[in-house]
């Protein structure tokens, strides 16, 4: 399944723009969904999609064919999202609650006026609560939880994308799950 992307990547590397356009078609929605789940902002998510493809294009020469193409592009996209989350003003901190051995990072919560019409499509109270619970996760847990539950990746795949040991991913899934359990307590 990955061989199509690899072939397209090789063609794009040689300067075939239409091959690159096909890669964009294959991945733009996937990366958009990832970015939207991470950032909860349509405009920012679209910017991340554009930056991801620009980076992919510039680094085609460095793409290692032994690696799955999807792992590579998800890594670029996820890192761009994490960068953006870290640059946001820390209006909400969970570090006291969720410290782990790797130190302090990750803030979330965006001002409510930043929200896009997408949020209005959350018809039920439950959907809105889940959306807000995910949105309030600190960056390092959010990336793991979004990849695990909303992109359906295995722990091993997440470990490949984030370039971290599986044990770290497991710890983060456990903490993220506990965090969400507390957030959703009223619903469950």
């Amino acid at each position: 399944m990955d061989t199509l992307e690899k072939r397209l990547a090789m063609l794009a590397r040689k300067g075939d723009t239409s091959a690159f356009a096909e890669i964009v078609e294959l991945y733009k929605d996937k990366i958009f969904h990832l970015a939207y789940r991470m950032l909860s902002n349509r405009h920012e998510a679209e910017d991340v999609v554009q930056d991801t493809f620009l980076r992919v294009y510039r680094n085609l020469d460095r793409y290692d064919e032994n690696q799955k193409f999807s792992t590579w592009i998800y890594r670029i996209g996820t890192n761009l999202c994490i960068d953006r989350l870290r640059k946001r003003k820390p209006s909400y901190s969970l570090d006291a609650e969720m410290n782990d051995q790797e130190g302090v990072d990750g803030y979330s919560m965006i001002p409510s006026d930043d929200r896009t019409p997408e949020t209005y499509l959350l018809v039920s109270e439950t959907q809105r609560m889940i959306h807000e619970a995910i949105d309030s996760l600190p960056a390092k847990y959010k990336s793991v939880m979004v990849l695990r539950y909303l992109q359906d990746m295995s722990l091993q795949e997440i470990s490949d994308v984030l370039n971290m040991p599986v044990t770290t991913i497991k710890t983060r899934v456990h903490r993220g799950r506990e965090f969400l359990r507390k957030k959703l307590e009223r619903k469950i």
Binding site: F32, H33, Y36, E118, L121, L122, V123, T126, Q127, I130, H131, I134, M145, Y149, L150, R177, L180, R181, L184, K187, I188
Partner: peptide, 13 residues
Amino acid sequence: ETEQLLYGFNHRL
């Protein structure tokens, strides 16, 4: 339950 909610969270973007 939390797992179920997350897996079922398929609001269409």
